[in-house]
Design a binder for these strands. Sequence first.
DNA 1: GTTGTTTTGAGAG
DNA 2: TCGCTCTCTCAAAACAAC
Length: 599
Amino acid sequence: MEGVDKEKVQKVIYEMSKGSKYFENEQRKEALTKQKIEHLRAQCAALTDNDISHFQKAAEKKMLELEASRDLSKIWLHTDMDAFYAAIETLEDPSLKGKPLAVGSMSMIATASYEARKFGVRAAMPGFIGCKLCPGLVFVRPNFERYTHYSELTRKVFQRYDPNFIATSLDEAYLNITNVCIERSITGEEVATELRTAIHQETGLTCSAGVAPNRMIAKVCSDINKPNGQFILPNDREAVLTFVSTLPIRKIGGIGKVTEQMLRQVLGISTCQEMLQKAAFLCALFSEGSADFFLSVGLGLGGTETPEQRQRKSISCERTFTATNDSSLLFEKLANLAENLAGDLQKEGLRGKTLTLKLKTADFEVRTRAVTTRGFINSKEDILIYATKLLKAEMPLSLRLMGLRMSQLHDEKDDSSTSTQKTLDIFFRSSNNASTGQQDFFVHDESIFIPEQRNLVNYSNEGVLSNPVIGDGLGGVSLDDVMNTEKLDDLSVLTSPEATASSCKPGQQLWIDGYICSICGFELPPGFEEERQEHSDFHLAESLQQEETVDSKRTISNESRLAERPCSSTPTPKKKLKSSKEGKHIPIDAFFTKCNKNL
DNA sequence: GTTGTTTTGAGAG
DNA sequence: TCGCTCTCTCAAAACAAC
């Protein structure tokens, strides 16, 4: 921003931050970045002339390929609303007009008005620093319903120019205006002017626009004449190359503070064009994907086709709070998060397999710990079981943020769920579920089939349930249960040897209808005598093993229980390799292959 | 033993 | 007194397949 005393702003930010835990963490992160830079420098120095010549050839080949893919036939427009949240608040309350305004709180500013920006106040800045920079700063709490309403109004306008426009946030969108330009014989510039006028008429808000042959450049262009302006780059190769020749790499979406530092300090790259000059080194030092991206940037290439609508890959929630090491408070917050996440999953009809616990310590260190469950889950109770295990493994610690994310999603509406029918363990489990009502925690044979659950089954409690049947994924686990280690570990009774042994007496094994195993539901027609015998032996061995281990398991101390970690999570140090028996998942297909071979 | 794939944690944007 | 949500990438470890 012009007129901002950047030095003064930097000094205020430094003075306000130094000595804080946040600041210390930032320094830690900077040290890590320096390490990365040193590592890259060493790699660079180790390159021989031969290496460089090899990578130069590879880079030239890649650049030719990329150049061949250049498409100048499309016209893309990027729009960005000006200080969107602040502008809406001013529109709704005209008394705010002309005042330095921050939408957010003392903790964090989401958007600042242009009057506030003159003082150096900006988005993603803590409110208390904003106050210091601009003593008269007016704060307004965010009102997302309001912003969504206005966003919808802008989208109605976008729709008229490109029905398949790509909204990247409430206030930004990409429009492919090629057809509009052709059909109405007008230029991209005329479309941009018309669209911005329409937005203003229909919302009372202003926006900026950029027009270019691809999305990457269009986004850069929309920032050039902000606020309430536009910039048009013609669909001409030379114009594009001239444009990027002096363009600082930091202007490109995807190149942030760390990448900028690495490219500048290791290879001396600061403009997009310099990417091409150092192409061989980019290919030598970075992964293929990264190198391709950097070279595309150097050539001014970007997306020109409207991408297919992507499916959601994860769903999460997280909350920041006053740092605490009070475990009861932390588990209470965890329960709230589990409830929120379950609600969101159920609202969208989704279930997930991988649960990730995110933690931010009082020192701002961020950790994630994940567990992959055997089946798809979405109930608060199931989520809480796994989340609690993950959190317990990290205790004790002082936290200021916790979050839960579910990934490897599966749409409930799509019940084909082929992925759950791939392995014997799931096969066995599902057949047992049918008779017991259990879903995710039934263990037929802990040592073979369910390594993730070993922390649940390695020790059973004194009180073994006479009836192992528990409803939908251990429903009804209360906060008290979660808080109480003993109670939580009582869950092991679900998978206790007694619980399963009672249903696994080999002598009672019957082939229902002549081919369905009454214990696990596995189907083996008469004629597969050898396999049927093998199958019976398996259940016999299983039963004997369980009986043998019952007593020893009961004697395991509480200490060893606490030392257990969720097996699928990967805390530091990484989990040990399991023995083949412990960790082996036997693909059901493989079993059938074997059967066929024996025919 | 080698190679390819998946999982996990970390971090960028 | 420094947020929330989501996607993507990378490296290393774990694991499967040959």
